[in-house]
Simulated assay, not measured.
Amino acid sequence: MRLPSLSNIFRLGLKELKSLRADKTLMVLICWAFSGAIYTAATGVSQELHNAPIAIVDEDQSPLSSRIVDAFYPPFFRQPQMISLAELDAGMDAGRYNFTLVIPAHFQRDVQAGKVPDVQLNIDATIMSQAFIGATYIKSIALGEVNEYLTGRRDSAATPIKLTSRVRFNPNLNGFWFGGVMEVINNVTMLTIILVGAAFIREREHGTIEHLLVMPLTPLEIMMAKIWANGMIVLCGVTFALLVMVRQVLAVPIAGSIPLFLAAAACYLFAAASIGIFLGTLARSMPQFGLLLILSILPLLMLSGGVSPRESMPEMVQNIMLAAPTTYFVRLAQGILYRGAGIDGIWQDLLAMTGIGACFFFVALLRFRKAVTQTQV
């Protein structure tokens, strides 16, 4: 068995780049994934309260109730719509209001008398991302206005402790800071698997795999060529996304070293590309490959800690995902880009990710040899 030739790997990689350039569909996908997809993922799905429509039924018409009405304003809420009690159900049913607040008659008189009047808050719970946040905001605003009206202070009675909160890494709690960066991380996984796997399927469908078989090439050289060529495209896209889309367009500060992140991403590309080749050897056509992508990419993206914290998942799922390189890549990427971690803070995840990637590469190589042998027969 001869050693792999760097010259063969380089020339095969150039062939991969030319084939990719001729595939207009994949080129459009790559351009969109690292530009428009980053922007829409960051700004299109808001996890915080923003311009929530609210209606208020003010049956008291007192200075205190008017004070509460005036306390709701953008950017958290739209200007409150004053409605009657008879209009409440119809407005909620039609989805015109996410929240409706009912201030009862004699509200100010009861508050001043030391009573505890009931204020009804109706919530459209179909907006799960904002329902509980909005309820907390409304409660805080209403209590603050009542306390300030009665005592001149917005906070309630003195407590035995004073809790001072410090928000790290995202002081304004901007959701798009998280969404844009995580979309970059997720697209590294998605595009690497798609590009490398599709490249192998394309070889089979176009019949060029037979041309490679008559050349003095080894499966290792063919695999390495596909990995470096497609990996270089993804790394270029990631660099553009971080420097232009994330840092300039979205104005999201990057705390850590971009070169360190790109170096870690290059190691991860090795593992993700091996998964792509493995799936390519299992599939016999591009439609089959697409079905396998659904079964593999969705769990990798949803259960790796990028969408929700791993600690909130069942313990069995956490243990299973330890065998996926995506888990370690997401963790080290968040550490570098969000918290400014250095190599001393990510080396364990980097080592685990590279080791798992080597295992996937070995399995993919065995499958690749088998697929080549079957094609040759």
Rank of each mutant, 00 (worst) to 15 (best):
Val57Phe: 05
Leu242Pro: 01
Trp32Phe: 15
Asn174Gly: 07
Leu212Asp: 04
Val249Asn: 13
Gln288Glu: 14
Ala113Asn: 03
Leu143Ile: 15
Asp70Arg: 15
Ser274Gln: 02
Ser46Asn: 14
Ala229Arg: 04
Ile127Cys: 09
Leu220Met: 09
Ala229Pro: 00
Ser84Glu: 03
Gly197Ile: 04
Leu29Arg: 11
Ala323Val: 15
Leu303Gly: 02
Tyr149Ala: 03
Gly276Leu: 06
Arg153Gln: 09
Glu315Ala: 03
Ala273Tyr: 01
Ala266Asp: 05
Val188Asn: 09
Leu235Met: 14
Gln47Lys: 13
Ser7Tyr: 14
Pro219Gly: 02
Glu210Ser: 12
Asp344Val: 09
Thr239Trp: 13
Arg310Cys: 05
Gln108Gly: 03
Ile83Tyr: 07
Pro314Thr: 01
Gly95Gln: 05
Ile141His: 00
Leu14Gly: 11
Ile343His: 03
Gly237Ser: 06
Met27Ser: 13
Met82Trp: 04
Ile356Arg: 01
Val69His: 05
Asp344Ala: 15
Asn147Asp: 04
Val167Ser: 03
Val330Ser: 09
Thr159Trp: 02
Thr218Tyr: 13
Met353Glu: 06
Lys115Phe: 07
Ala271Ser: 14
Asn8Ala: 12
Ala251Phe: 06
Val57Lys: 03
Thr373Trp: 10
Gly175Pro: 08
Val116Pro: 02
Phe176Gly: 00
Ala41Tyr: 06
Leu29Val: 11
Glu203Gly: 02
Arg367Gly: 04
Ala157Met: 12
Gln47Leu: 15
Pro309Lys: 13
Asn170Thr: 06
Trp228Ser: 10
Leu121Lys: 05
Trp228Met: 08
Glu183Met: 10
Glu48Thr: 15
Phe270Gly: 08
Asp110Ala: 06
Tyr39Thr: 02
Val184Cys: 04
Thr281Glu: 00
Arg367Ala: 08
Leu243Met: 12
Thr25Asn: 12
Gln108Arg: 00
Arg67Gly: 14
Thr326Tyr: 09
Ile222Trp: 06
Glu221Ser: 00
Phe76Asn: 13
Gly134Glu: 01
Gln47Ala: 14
Ala55Pro: 10
Glu87Pro: 08
Val246Lys: 02
Asp118Phe: 05
Ile56Ala: 07
Gly197Asn: 01
Phe99Met: 10
Ala199Cys: 05
Leu29Met: 14
Gln79Met: 11
Phe99Asn: 09
Phe76Gly: 11
Ala241Asn: 03
Arg2Met: 09
Leu150Asp: 00
Leu49Ser: 15
Leu163Pro: 02
Asp23Ala: 08
Ile258Val: 15
Leu366Arg: 06
Gly13Val: 12
Met224Tyr: 12
Thr327Ser: 14
Leu12Met: 09
Phe240Val: 05
Thr40Phe: 14
Ala37Thr: 08
Leu282Lys: 12
Asn147Gly: 04
Leu269Phe: 00
Ala225Ile: 00
Phe176Cys: 01
Met215Ser: 12
Ser304Asn: 13
Val246Glu: 12
Cys31His: 10
Trp347Asn: 12
Arg284Glu: 11
Asp344Ile: 08
Gly36Trp: 12
Ala94Lys: 13
Leu242Gln: 07
Pro75Glu: 04
Val372Cys: 10
Leu163His: 05
His50Glu: 15
Thr126Gly: 02
Gly175Ile: 06
Leu20Arg: 00
Gly357Arg: 05
Asp118Asn: 06
Pro104Ser: 01
Ala125Ile: 01
Ala22Glu: 15
